[in-house]
Design a binder for these strands. Structure first.
Lengths: 202, 202, 202, 202
DNA sequence: TCTTAACCGAGACGGTACGTCGGGTCTTCAC
DNA sequence: GTGAAGACCCGACGTACCGTCTCGGTTAAGA
């Protein structure tokens, strides 16, 4: 993957590809990202090293695909967020979900690994933005636009900024462990953000 | 360092220590964090590898000290933030300064390196929190308390939350390159945050 | 080849066969025998690897055929040696020719390669003996028998021994570079051998 | 070795050196020269690969040293050949000994390996000539000179030529397996050679 | 004339070994 | 007596080839 993967169009072995991605996920969980080696992935997957080097340019790219293969959206199937009409309640639900995901030990190690890759590889980061983040962000913005139409959010609010205010604090507390990452914290962030962009204010 | 460094109290060679930290900084800038090696540091510093292993437990710890040695506060000398009486203006000044620092190419590579270490090493992260972040955060909170006393900020505002709202968006945009990191962005974040915790609101 | 090659009797592509043998000779000359690889032969010959593996059992066998294809006798056409009636002069001529062949740089590398194969592969050596050496040796012995009839050589001389005395010193000097390989040396070897088996002596 | 080995003068580990040479000899006997790998030598010797690469430039050089370490003369202790006064009998004894050595399966594989190296590496061949062959040849020539003084050998005989006639046939039969390698063959070669250079003849 | 099966170029695959880099430990020697 | 120098064992790197195995695409027998 990394670039598009076209099933059936090449002689690439789908069996090997899945074995590699699976072994990569297993090893990240077992030994951590820093001690992950191509050699161990190949061995665990029952695959020659060359088969990895043939299809991925770097260890980071393998990790990237291994993790994305888990969360990849079915193409064309748009992400949908709850829209009960109550913006604050809906946002609390999704931010709490994010907090819960970050708190799940099964996700922690791989996502840290992925994040490390993105920090040091701008190209990979751009690909991640395009393939994963953008669709999700668009869904979130759509919910915010719905709130704008309902008069629950300033009409002139910069939606990228709103998303930053909502998610960056959660992301940073998780990444750097600078404070407790709880549902209460999620709620407080949402409340503050909604307040900041309330039509009544200002 | 990492643990306390007591100048003069041991037989440790200060000359070697400085050479190692300097070589580390130079190499991070030259070859990047990923390709930084203890051997290269020792060779560049004109030092035996053992001299590094004797005093630091890991490569991360060396990098940590190398970067901290640059920004270390003189002990006992508290950080002071501007307090003109205008909270929003004062905050814009300090957040803009943060943005400027992140935008400086000379700081970018080493800070990314340090951040990567903190992400994967909770112990180092705690030390960083204690030695670097806490004093600065305390200074920022002091400015916020001053604003509370002046009636420019809600008296019951959770100051940790306020700091998260102020700094996390900047940090995340820098780390993941998810959007432009400009003075305008800094201003917008400050305005939104101040609005969220304005005494008039809610 | 190695075993018989029957042109026309199979679907084997003569074009591919020639391309493989030619590429093998070219590569032995270019990179030497030690660095010769099947992949390189296939690539140079514009041939799939399988086509080589289909028809030859080992790299040695390909090299063997590649070199033999150069020197192969037309079947049925016996080798003939000069027979002027003067044994010593005739032998000097053929041993000098052998020395000249060994001294030709174009022959040196391939013959060393072939010799290495024969040293380590008894089966190939037997085949070489049968296909190449035996006919030539028989021609040489015929000349010696002629000399016996002419009373220039002991009637009871062991002809295999005579040939060993004549050729082994030249072969060894060439292979191990233990001394100068000149026409004078060839002459000296012939003179000593003829003397050793002179009817007058003993 | 290969170049001089100066015990005690460097930090080189004699224990590792001996383990490597021993493992090399064992593996040549077990799997043959063609399948001998540096990796296997290192593993068997309980040594890092780098320790081999640090001290030897090639696999051939290791093999060379491994075999030479067996036959190396004590420096200063000259080789002595039998001198009973009967040249032919004495020569038969030493050539028979050579035949016996070649026939010993324990020597066959390693000496073939060494010979292959010498064929393809002129530098190594020169070193072998200087370190091993020359002293032995000199001893043989001394015996021949003794025979010259005793009137059993032509005074003007080229001793290098005599040695070639004596040893090359044995060497070639062994290397290429072109005929039986027996004590009778050794005797016949000696008899012919002695005859060729008999003072009475010519 | 039309199958049809062997042969072909191509190259992916699971592997072994290469020669190099660097990790962290341990020893030696010069200052 | 410290500390630079660097040898040591080890693990992993990324590459080259090994010999096997499909893949489609000719191509030449024989039906």
């Amino acid at each position: 993957m990394v670039t598009e993967h076209r099933p059936g169009s090449s002689r690439r072995s789908e069996r090997s590809r899945q074995a590699i991605l699976g072994a990569t996920r297993a090893l990240i969980a077992e030994v951590g990202y820093a001690k992950l080696s191509i050699e161990a992935i190949a061995s665990r997957a029952g695959v020659g090293k060359q088969t990895i080097y043939r299809w991925w340019p770097s260890k980071g790219a393998v990790v990237f695909d291994a993790i994305l293969a888990l969360s990849e959206q079915s193409p064309g199937e748009p992400v949908a967020l709850p829209d009960t009409g109550d913006l604050e309640a809906d946002l609390k639900q999704v931010v709490r979900a994010t907090v819960a995901e970050f708190s799940d030990p099964a996700f922690d190690a791989p996502i840290r690994a992925l994040t490390t890759e993105l920090v040091h590889d701008a190209e990979l980061a751009a690909l991640y933005e395009k393939r994963v983040a953008a669709p999700v962000d668009e869904a979130k913005k759509e919910r915010l636009r719905s709130a704008q139409r309902a008069g629950q959010l300033r009409a002139d609010a910069d939606l990228d900024l709103v998303l930053d205010l909502l998610y960056a604090p959660v992301f940073r507390r998780w990444l750097l462990r600078t404070g407790p990452l709880t549902a209460e914290f999620a709620d407080a962030v949402v409340e503050a953000t909604v307040r900041a962009f309330s039509p009544a204010a200002g």
